[in-house]
Amino acid sequence: MIKDITQYFRKEMFPHIWCPGCGNGIVLGAILRAIHSIGWEKDEIVMVSGIGCSSRITGYVDFNTMNTTHGRALPFATGIKMANPKLKVIAVMGDGDCAAIGGNHFIHSARRNIDITAIIINNMIYGMTGGQYSPLTPTGKYGSTAPYGNIDQSFDLAALAASAGASYVARGNIFDVSQITRFIKKALLKKGFSVVEVISDCPISFGRINQLRTPVQMLEWIKSISVSKKVWEKLSKEEQVGKIPTGEFLDIDIPEYTEKYQNICINIQQERRGK
């Protein structure tokens, strides 16, 4: 039998519930290839998700898994990681999940620089609830609650994570799967809070209302708006409008939270014994 990524599946759960062409499955594949390439044991991996289409991801993989409440994947993950720092903790979130209802947890997890990998599947819409606009819906695009076009500015999650204190930040898309797999692998291996945002599609809830009805149209569009970081930096402000830079934005080594906490414990215990 071939040892491929299907070894990580809870096979009875397949085929999965996602719509035809949904990027969630593509990102799941990338995550599993990255894990497979590192060679982590299933027992030491904890995958935590919030609520939404993307959050169903945890039901399909044979790790210690948790599908929590909307926006809260990271604080649940934080509790797990602090209680047992040996565990490899991965939080998978959607864009509404991570950046709207979970926005506070996202910046504070970055601020602590806790050794958790956050993977955000950004399909720029609330897919499961029927296509309401999210904090990552591009300005001017449509949603069921933005029938006249979205006037909100969208977050730059990568910039947000980097400025909040993360160790590793990268962005890719579901078109370039090799790239996101590479980013995810680096993020998983990074000691500290690591973030990989993956620009993804939602042909049903985003595509239909934005004239990108098929998965192929959506992928073509994602390809057309994505530019590498190097190219992006050379664009004028006007040229940058409507485009999304991809690549690695941050990769630094700074003190990690669980280690800092363990040091506190060791020091105080020594001090108490010394008395």
């Binding site: 929590t68 604080p75 649940f76 934080t78 509790g79």
Partner: peptide
């Protein structure tokens, strides 16, 4: 909210 979530996470661990 995060406090409650972290408590549940720790308990599961």
């Amino acid at each position: 909210i995060a406090s409650m979530a972290a408590v549940i996470g720790a308990s599961l661990a």
